[in-house]
Design a protein around this nucleic acid. Sequence first.
RNA 1: GGUCCAGUGGUGUAGUGGUUAACAUGCCUCCCUGUCACGGAGGAGAUCGCGAGUUCGAUCCUCGUCUGGACCGCCA
Length: 580
Amino acid sequence: MNRTHTNGELTAANAGQKVVLLGWVARRRNLGSLVFIDLRDRTGITQCVFGETVNQLVKDVRNEYILEITGTVELRKDPNVKMPTGQIEVKAESIVIVNTAELTPMMIQDDTDALEDTRLKYRYLDLRRPIMQDRLIKRAAIVKTMRNYLDDHGFIDIETPMLTKSTPEGSREYLVPSRVHAGEFYALAQSPQIFKQMLMIAGLERYYQIARCFRDEDLRADRQLDFTQVDIEASFLSEAEFQLIIEKMVVKVMKEVIGRDQKLDFLKLPFADAMNRFGSDKPDIRYGLELTDVTDIFTETEFAVFANALALPDGSLKALVVADGAHFTRKETDALTEVAKKNGTKGLVVLKLTDGKLEGGAVKFFSETQQEALISRLNAQNHSLILVTADRWESACNALGAVRTALRDKLQLVSKDDFAFLWVVDFPLLEYNYEDERFYARHHPFTRPKEEQLHLLDTDPGKVLASAYDLVLNGFEVAGGSLRIYDQKVQEKMFEIIGFTHQQIRERFGFFVDAFKYGTPPHGGIAFGLDRFAMVLTASDSIRDVIAFPKNASARCPLTEAPAKVDQKQLDELHIAIVK
RNA sequence: GGUCCAGUGGUGUAGUGGUUAACAUGCCUCCCUGUCACGGAGGAGAUCGCGAGUUCGAUCCUCGUCUGGACCGCCA
């Protein structure tokens, strides 16, 4: 077997050359004494034609057989402009059936109609589809570009353990029983966070890692159990300096992988503005439909929905106008209400503006002044649809933000190959949980409070902003990071605020807290969700489309049938008993 | 843990309280020298996810169960 060319590279320039091609049979067209075979490999498809050379072997060929075809490159009489190799064909002189194939359970073509379940069960066939290969190739290009960039900028690729210590708080972990130490467990790393910070304490200054992370949480279209982070950390950099380094890397990825000229100086949107304007901490800014605060218009109201909301601490009213949306049917607005309900609020107030008058069930509770104020505040035009949420500030924003996203999809306001990056910055350091009546770290407990707000930690911790930043692309958080606490006293204060006792700190993070005593540099970092980043950049609908062998939504691998039961012998060795 | 949706030839769908279970594609056979999603003729292929119930009769209705998908909770 001496392959001379791949199936994607032959052009008119090769005309007259004798070639040997290898590949899978993508399709055949049998016209009797004239047979066309489309031969496919990773690089593309070449049409091979058999005329007087048609024999029984050629007729026996089936889809997905692997063939070796020897022939001569010829210009086509009528070229196929849809194919990159459409200018030529290979006039076949001989054929070798390298391997046969059974009928495949799914068709090997880009627009396969197989359900994902089938695709995952026969993933090796699914991955034969050119569109899937493209995605994996692009993903590899993203990683390569980031690696090259980071290498060139003094970042050192260092591996950290996957088997590590369980540190409750944060996501649920996968536990791995120790055979050597009966009854003790490792945890699979949910992120290299603590290790990369210790690398900064160690003085490595700039680190990165293409790191596998494991989280035992329920899956989603953009979440996997084991996923890949491009994990980065650096010392002695300000927030702005670090963000610029990351932006330049992203610009390089966009140029080299997608072929786009992405401008530097990404928009930096404070968290509060993101919520107020877009109802999301990861807004898609490719389209308008921004939210407007109308709380002050209804401070005095008979309308129970508004009054109840305003009675809550930081109760807010958020409104959104859909120009020309008055034609929405009851069914359509009900669907939007469902979206709001699913996303943390009790309902959605639906109003329409027709002939200069507000319509809708709630209008009878509004005074003339309130109606006028609402229309003018929203700058609402005739025939528009007005949607209002009323709840605690964050809930009202989130719910209406979800409605905004639903409208984006319904009205098809964006294109999948349009990309808009921004930073969301100035996140609150802490999040108050009204049920547990305590603060939680919004990002993680090592996140550095804004320097100028340190004094608020004692008096009003809920107000303190963090040096935390998320990189957002088209409504997806593709990376998240922060500057870290490097002052031991601040770290202790932080643990105290989120309710850790000294004993808990010792047990969970003792080794980490100890490390801080010996000269910790100011440092910070970021972690890219590589799978999610690749998903958005390849315009895929699911994270599973950019992972070669993913788990399905119920955390199983249909191909290998993991997870599975194991032998009693294995369990005994690990000192594990199945109770039920 | 919860809500919603789906399960019917290999694949993807339609459909009905009594049917020869339909369509597309794939597959098989035959015809075809310029196709490229080739075309034409014919053919095979389905215990309608599983279990129970209602009924004279269930693929269809009810309950349960399993599997898959989207989302909420969860993901420091």
